[in-house]
Amino acid sequence: MRRWFVILVPYLWLLVFFLIPFFIVFKISLSDIATAIPPYTPTFSITDIGGFFSQLDFENYTFIFQDSLYIGAYFSALKIAFFSTILTLLIAYPIAYGMARAPREWQPTLVMLVILPFWTSFLIRVYAWIGILKKEGLLNLFLMNLGLISEPLTIMNTNTAVYIGIVYSYLPFMILPLYASLEKINPALLEAAADLGSPPWKSFWQVTFPLSIPGVLAGCFLVFIPATGEFVIPDLLGGSETLMIGKTLWNEFFNNRDWPVSSAVAVVLLLVLVVPIVLFQRNQEKQREAGR
């Protein structure tokens, strides 16, 4: 009994909080816009199930694939997410490496420091970046006082600011899995590599990095997936030309009040992300097997 319960709980969770909502969204994506409550038609009715299903169609999907706007937004979102992920990885790796190498007794404190920003609202932290990056912001003041630049740099409201914002916000999600995988590496492995004639930098590429790949993958997925749908950071830090799918979704839902089309956009976004999610899942499984 108890075993069944343990198995059932996660599936029940997925069913209630993922699968059912997804099917509701999917159903709406097959509907038509209407001036009513709710603003689409048909609505589900138990008395006329046949009539309900006969009114559903894939019109909204054909629509979003006909307008280059949506495909462009998907690609631009994927591009920004991809490069932010790479950047985050490049910055997070040395930090995680340093943490894993730090004396044991410091490590809990270092992990705390990485998590610490979460104590402050995400929005406030993104706003703080406005204060840093804007024309008369801290960064420009600092660089000008140092005499490194004579004219303030325009970073705010550009894609550069979006990258900074995403990298900053998602850094902990990259550092923590990296740290977890680096910290697990038996230090004796590096001694063994050195003992067999490998200098430290070669040992890094031959031993440390390959063994941290599960962490690299986990971190990359944890950054890439939410960054693709990111809305707040490009809105606050980006320029108007930063078109991401999150913004397009927002426009569809709030400006056009077109719940069916915005649902279709969301469903397609999910499908776009399902590929990396499945890859991630398979990687996790392989890990679990290898760990046995």
Binding site: N186, A188, A192, A194, L196, G197, L211
Partner: peptide, 29 residues
């Protein structure tokens, strides 16, 4: 440095490289 010494060690934990096959482990040095 350890990697410059003419000695090789067998570790208590064996310290086999988990991501390499037996052949690759043996051929590492």
């Amino acid at each position: 440095a350890p990697y410059e010494r003419p000695v090789n060690m067998m570790f208590q934990s064996y310290a086999l490289f988990p991501h390499m096959t037996v052949e690759q482990n043996i051929g590492f040095g």
